[in-house]
Design a protein around this nucleic acid. Sequence first.
DNA 1: CGGTATCCTGGGAGATACTG
DNA 2: CAGTATCTCCCAGGATACCG
Lengths: 120, 120
Amino acid sequence: MLTKKKKRWDDIPGCSLEAALNVIGGKWKGVFLFHLLDGTMRFNELSRLAQGASPRLIVKQLRELEEDGLVNRKVYAVVPPKVEYSLTEEGHSLHNILHALSEWGDLWVDNHPVEPVTKP
Amino acid sequence: MLTKKKKRWDDIPGCSLEAALNVIGGKWKGVFLFHLLDGTMRFNELSRLAQGASPRLIVKQLRELEEDGLVNRKVYAVVPPKVEYSLTEEGHSLHNILHALSEWGDLWVDNHPVEPVTKP
DNA sequence: CGGTATCCTGGGAGATACTG
DNA sequence: CAGTATCTCCCAGGATACCG
């Protein structure tokens, strides 16, 4: 039997905001969740969203989202293999937050242009 | 003269959501921002929020928030020293998001009780 | 009081190769 | 197609000590 790993936010007792950020704050989790709002996606589609990320990381992020109850993983017993990812109801409950974050980030990026690295 | 560091989200072009998460996603940033919504706080007060964190980290998080335009740092030329942190307007624009995250996290934590580590 | 200055470590993430 | 399996590197974050 499996020995359950401690949750990643165990050491932040009582802080629900930190818990939320830990759940959605992984490198690509926000992106995945956001795009999954529009419907199910396959592994390769998600990979394309995470340009340059190795499969290892993509799998890890998806597995954590699954463990945390935000994402469903449905495996079809066909060949070639087919796996579909979709949001659980809990995942969909992030809809407003994800859109708010996206809009806020949009404004923020506009107001904070990336300055070209100044020559010494 | 200073050579500007590349922004931490330089390698995630076009993704405003990731930008947002990078800005508010530091270890204690969410907590600091959330509590600063209620008014200015001094360094020591913020330290107390981040139980167990070393000053080095607290300073770093605050400096990054400052750099990112979310937090003001006001130094009073008195003795003993007094420094007050407060939110900029941009920081306050996170009000709804921070509260939404906090509430969502609250629910999530309720639905995902930390299971005691199962004995092998 | 509000920080610096050092030193150090864990694990998050990258790169590459292989497989059912 | 949808992943494992290794190996490695880097740096966010921790620990401790000291300072104006």
